[in-house]
């Protein structure tokens, strides 16, 4: 205690040893729930509704399809209603209902006495003006830049689908115009998962989908669910009433393809 002249020299054999292992977690089983994926897309010859069910965690990744459901999509703007035909088990299609910007569509599904409904308005169509690549300064990866003009009026929501050599990647790319309203947008689509990494020679297709705010909310919460880092994880916010999972997306679509030079 005479003097407090301390020089401490720490020789540390320190390593951050983070490690991963597969464990068994005893998860409860749960009653199956309906999962509805319904799309009305502009410029498509047919539109589809896919109905499946959930399974327990320990079961195989085989998701039962729901057949014999009554599926009706109505274009409220033109008062045209169509009952969809089940072409493959659980997959219902229509070629009468076509997507037109500004039209209001409703979805009605009745399966085993459960009724699910939704409605949405197709947003204004925005196209990709030009598409090119950039190299990320940080990781040196190839990114795609779909350039487009955000309209002057606020409230546009975008979702991008990315296909590498014909295979859709698992990335969720969504944007709104809260901070970038009315500008020419040159934000790159960064490669995220391993299936999304680009190599010279790849053929890349980008779909620019203009979605409504409820569908944006669905994709936003889907992203959170997939990240699995929330303290209160939950199922994505659906715009379908009646207790089904999934979404009813009424959107425009513009595709562009780019071939990466070898």
């Amino acid at each position: 205690m005479k003097s407090l002249h301390i020089i401490s020299f720490i020789v540390a054999l320190v390593y951050f040893s983070s490690c991963q292992k597969v464990i068994t977690v005893d998860l409860n089983s749960t009653d199956p729930r309906y999962v509805i994926e319904a799309n009305v897309v502009d410029g498509q010859p047919s539109n589809f509704v896919h109905i499946t069910r959930t399974v327990n965690f320990d079961q195989d990744n085989v998701f039962p399809t729901v057949s014999g459901a009554l599926v009706i999509i109505t274009d409220k703007t033109t008062s045209l209603a169509d009952t969809l035909k089940e072409t493959v088990a659980g997959l219902y299609s229509t070629s009468k209902i076509v997507g037109i910007s500004g039209h209001n569509y409703t979805l009605y599904v009745k399966a085993d006495n459960h009724v699910f409904t939704s409605s949405a308005i197709m947003p204004e169509k925005i196209e990709i003006d030009t598409m090119y690549t950039s190299i990320s300064g940080f990781r040196g990866e190839i990114n795609i830049i779909p350039e487009y003009n955000d309209p002057a009026e606020k409230g546009n929501y975008y979702q991008f689908a990315k296909y590498v050599n014909g295979v859709e990647t698992a990335d969720i790319y969504i944007r709104n115009d809260n901070l970038i309203n009315g500008q020419t947008i040159r934000q790159p689509l960064n490669a995220r998962g391993p299936d999304s990494k680009l190599n010279p020679g790849d053929v890349v297709r980008i779909d620019l989908n203009c979605i409504d705010s409820a569908t944006y909310q669905y994709f936003f919460t889907l992203q959170q669910t997939k990240n699995q880092n929330s303290a209160s994880p939950a199922n994505p916010a659906t715009n379908i009433t009646g207790g089904a999972l999934g979404y009813f997306s009424v959107h425009t679509m513009d595709s562009k393809i780019i071939v990466l030079p070898k």
Binding site: T30, T54, V55, N56, F63, L222, A234
Partner: peptide
């Protein structure tokens, strides 16, 4: 909160 089931979208 862990999941109690799974589905496909």
């Amino acid at each position: 909160s862990f999941p109690s089931g799974k589905y496909n979208v």
